[in-house]
């Protein structure tokens, strides 16, 4: 129970390549929402995991998927580490490949 409370305070650093920008997320925070709130021009459209516009590649670290990506991403893309930022939150520090607008 106390671990759950502590987990809320965890913060993760997310490095974006190739822009070299960096954002900080709290545990459970949505990757796209937080990036947009911190002024990052992340490509996006539907924000519900259906269009694939916010797709990015996780180079290092792990994310928590909030939906099944298989309806939008191919098995190969999922295996290569692609995720949908609008339906992901960090589990660790991350390095992400994303071409910003």
């Amino acid at each position: 129970m106390f671990n759950i409370l502590k987990k809320k305070d965890l913060k993760f650093n997310v490095k974006l390549e190739p822009s070299n920008k960096e954002i900080v997320l709290k545990s459970g925070e949505n990757l796209l929402t937080t990036a947009l709130a911190q002024g990052i021009k992340w490509p996006h459209k539907c924000r519900v995991g259906s269009c694939g516009t916010c797709k990015c590649k996780v180079l290092e670290g792990k994310v928590k998927a909030e939906i099944d990506f298989a309806n939008v991403l191919s098995p190969e893309q999922i295996q290569q580490g692609f995720v949908l930022a609008c339906k992901s939150s960090p589990k660790t520090d991350l390095k992400i490949l994303i071409n910003l607008i």
Binding site: K45, C46, V48, G49, S50, I67, N71, V72
Partner: peptide, 10 residues
């Protein structure tokens, strides 16, 4: 559930 998320929102 599927149609709403993957079609309606798009």
């Amino acid at each position: 559930t599927y149609a709403h998320v993957y079609q309606h929102h798009l």
